[in-house]
Design a protein around this nucleic acid. Structure first.
Lengths: 163, 163
DNA sequence: ATCCAACTTCAAGCCCGCTTCAAGTCAAGC
DNA sequence: GCTTGACTTGAAGCGGGCTTGAAGTTGGAT
């Protein structure tokens, strides 16, 4: 049987099988993440290997890459064939680091929260949560946030209980 | 000493001490995340407790809440006082679950990647990565993605090696 | 031959979390 | 009282990741 029988997917078929909307697929194509050939009538036809690329894109997004970064990553993989172990090793290795970092950050956050639950977070100056070092570090301009004064919240004016 | 001496912060002071831009603070206020009183000249003055609310907001964002969700969460906390352990317990407990889920997802992803590195991901139908169950489940409309056929990639047309 | 769903393009719109701008007002120091 | 910088408002803009809409074309089944 000649290959070109079922091997070219319409955008609708690709959408159904990838779980993405056709609009998303066109968008991906406009970004150069996937490619198509055209019929004589100018309709898109995708190689089945496009499903692989799409799966890659979605996985990469989950790892936190932007579509722009995905495109870069995709450039290292063969367009129409399954990647070799070597291909994978490079790409997936980088992802692992990202994932590890993300996990580490979450675990830190969790530890802080646990501490806060224990302490009741009655003190601004003592609560780890309020000394949001990660965030401030990531954001750039210095980890000040709280703590810059605040020996236990200080005197608050007579605001009274809210309505 | 009367409290209202240093206890009211201008938006600039709040910005400096929270690490946020004044524009962000006004935006937060427009969303009802923080509140201010006004001077006779219509300028905002914030209670120092606002710093706590902001810290809360940032922390919540890190945990993955939208600002809308943050507002809901904030509604459970006292406006002008540090939260009690009980207050915290509720909120932070919910966050912990979120964090746990996120960590679990990342670890799953990582495991998949590890498997993929090992197997070289030469097979669409066998690669865990391509059966993106998490994503599909989260996205709603059924975990199809790949696997719907594909007994090892199938015959690909003569595309030849890329440039 | 005709029909209708699926396709085409391009532009605009949407959501989120802000930032930027313009035009004007306030407040504190000299 | 004047200057200067911090403040005010509302509207618009931005970036990312798409979706929606309008107006027109294709293609497979009958």
């Amino acid at each position: 049987m000649t290959p070109s029988r079922h091997d070219r997917l319409t955008i609708g078929q690709l959408a159904e099988r990838s779980g993405l909307a056709t609009s998303a697929l066109r968008y991906y194509e406009s970004l150069g993440l996937i490619h198509s050939e055209r019929t004589t009538g100018n309709q898109r036809r995708y190689a089945r290997s496009t499903l692989r690329r799409i799966a890659f894109v979605r996985a990469a997004q989950q790892v936190g890459l932007s579509l722009d970064e995905v495109r870069t990553a995709l450039a290292r993989l063969p367009e129409d064939r399954a990647p070799t172990p070597r291909d994978w090793h490079t790409v997936a290795g980088a992802w692992q680091h990202r994932i590890d970092r993300q996990i580490a950050e979450l675990q830190q956050m969790k530890a802080k929260l646990t501490g806060c639950i224990g302490c009741g977070c009655l003190s601004l100056s003592r609560c780890a949560l309020y000394n949001a070092d990660d965030r401030a570090a990531a954001a750039g301009p210095g980890a000040r946030y709280l703590l810059t004064r605040d020996p236990d919240d200080g005197p608050e004016p007579a605001v009274g209980p809210e309505g």
